[in-house]
Design a protein around this nucleic acid. Structure first.
Length: 496
RNA sequence: GGCGACGUAGCCAAGAGGUCCAAGGCAGAGGUUUGCAAAACCUCGAUUCACCGGUUCGAAUCCGGUCGUCGCCUCCA
């Protein structure tokens, strides 16, 4: 690694060089979701953020073990299941399937492991036993609590002390707790709830412990990166640290804590309690998934990002532009014989061709420099669009045929961006088709009818009947269908 | 009340004290191109980085204060 990647660490509140413990092997755990409902665009942000972390680390030569859990044992799941009269694990499995569909629609890479809580009860019980053995927990009835006062570093991540926390201020405190901030490691089973046998009787894991246990099982007592949404810093991640470090005696549990910013709607955080939820699949019906990625990645992952349908459609426009340039570059790459070097061609042709060559040559280094600095995807995307413009300048000009080797270079740059960001990964034709299908659906337009009218217009144009051709054009235009006459015939698109 | 983040053009957004008198995208104006369009390309847009002080030869970038917005402290990505 010629120049280390630098990442912001929530624990130290600094951007610091990232050096994995184990050479080129990186171990990363990301909090997935509690699967009692469909994924919303806030989940999407976390998933997209860490998908990019994963992609980029792999791109830079690391071997990454990426674990993202499904929390399938939880109060809310149980409550939903009881309402629906469905076994809790069946319900959670349905939502895991839905999650996989949604994330595939966004073009996210699957993690190395996707453990479920229900499959790791023995590991959880073992972890709780270790915590008790080291004197950091206590049993009350069939419940087990973590004793925060026994762990001197409690608050290290969130930067709050036990005095500051004032946990009792806003919630009713269970008077069996020794300290208001103590939290459940294991909960005794209530009637009608799923349960597992344990040394403390029938029960189930508390919230937090599952991540400690599964991270330990797949990644060991100490690992490189732990990610999740910024709203998990406290109490979830704080409690994870306390449990894990208390159980193993190994510090630090996690070397780098990474947290993505929230998605806001109309200046407010999207959240379950506010009820302002937008689901991933509602978007995917009408917009290609990469548009959401572009919208998010245009901002830094730690900043809040405003969501709006206008913003999304905006991003779709940019994506479309990117794919058009990609298509031109891909076309050139396929045709380029490589008989002449890009450098020679650039020198001979000069002007925009030379400019494109220069941009392409510097692209990878500049792209890496941006991403190395705590994943500055905004700048990386800026660079990509500079490339788009440079490509269009060359590809759209007369004599583009002579510049093929240089356009082929640009094509390779687009590949780098696509692999690292997951944007522009589809074959351009595939993207245009997806966009057309989804936009037609969004606008309720019948495809066959459009194609018939376009054919009609083409016939009119062949007869040089401009009046009729223009009438059809404006007719279609009123329905947001834009007709384009190019050298290779007439195409059409749905206006975005 | 405690802890934290942020405030850059009409909108979104990047900017490791000087080589940035501020990337990129969208929207807008003019132009090239086109049967007419669309797309694409070219040109134009913050004398300025919420406000006020301070440090410095020099600050959007550092420090202090003011105002504003948001997040966490309760389930949350």
């Amino acid at each position: 690694m010629e120049h280390p990647i630098r990442l912001y660490n929530t624990r130290t509140r600094c951007v610091e060089p990232f050096v994995p413990t184990d050479g080129t092997r990186v171990r990363m755990y990301v909090c997935g979701m509690t699967v009692y409902d469909l994924c919303h665009i806030g989940h999407a942000r976390a998933m997209i953020t860490f998908d990019v972390v994963y992609r980029y680390l792999v791109h830079r030569g690391y071997e990454v073990v990426y674990v993202r859990n499904h929390t399938d044992v939880d109060d809310k799941i149980i409550a939903r299941a009881q309402e629906a009269g469905e076994p809790a694990l069946e319900l959670s499995n349905r939502f895991i399937d839905a999650l996989h569909e949604d994330l595939a629609g966004l073009g996210l890479r699957p993690p190395t492991h996707e453990p479920k809580v229900s499959d790791h009860i023995p590991q959880i019980i073992a972890l709780v036993e270790d915590i008790l053995a080291r004197g950091h927990g206590y049993v009350v009835g069939g419940d087990v609590f973590f004793a925060v006062e026994s762990f001197p570093w409690y608050g290290q991540l969130s930067g709050r002390s036990l005095e500051d926390a004032r946990v009792g201020d806003r919630i009713a405190v269970d008077d069996r707790k020794r300290h208001p901030a103590d939290f459940a490691l294991w909960k005794a089973a209530q009637p009608g709830e799923p349960w597992w046998d344990s040394p403390w009787g029938k029960g189930r894991p508390g919230w937090h412990i599952e991540c400690s246990a599964m991270a330990r099982h797949y990644l060991g007592d100490s690992f490189d990166i732990h990610g999740g949404g910024a709203d998990l810093v406290f109490p979830h991640h704080e409690n994870e640290i306390a449990q894990s470090e208390a159980a193993t005696g190994v510090r630090p549990f996690v070397r780098v804590w990474m947290h993505n910013g929230m998605v806001t709607l109309a200046e407010q955080k999207m959240s379950k309690s506010l009820g302002n939820i937008v689901r991933i699949r509602d978007i995917l019906r009408e917009i290609p998934g990469e548009a959401l990625k572009l919208l998010y990645l245009e901002a830094h992952y730690r900043s809040p990002v405003p969501y709006s349908s206008e913003g999304l459609v905006n991003a779709l426009g940019g994506l479309d532009r990117l794919y058009q340039a990609r298509e031109a570059a891909a076309h050139a790459a396929a045709q380029s014989t490589g008989a002449r070097s890009a450098g020679d061609v650039a020198r001979d042709l000069g002007g925009p061709v030379q400019d494109l060559h220069d941009i392409a040559l510097a692209f990878e280094d500049r792209f890496h420099a941006a991403m190395d600095e705590d994943l500055n995807t905004s700048e990386a995307i800026g660079l990509t669009f500079e490339l788009v413009r440079a490509v269009n300048r060359v590809a759209g000009a007369k004599g583009a045929g002579r510049a093929l080797p240089v356009l082929a270079e640009a094509h390779a740059c687009f590949e780098t961006a696509a692999v690292c960001l997951g944007i522009g990964e589809l074959a351009p034709g595939e993207f245009f088709e997806e966009m057309r299908t989804k936009r037609l659906r969004a606008m309720g337009i019948d495809r066959a009818e459009v194609e018939a009218r376009v054919a009609e217009r083409t016939a009119a144009r062949l007869d040089r009947d401009w009046t009729r051709a223009d009438a059809i054009r404006s007719d279609l235009d009123a329905k947001n269908i834009v007709v384009m006459d190019g050298p290779e015939g007439t195409t059409w698109r749905v206006r975005v």
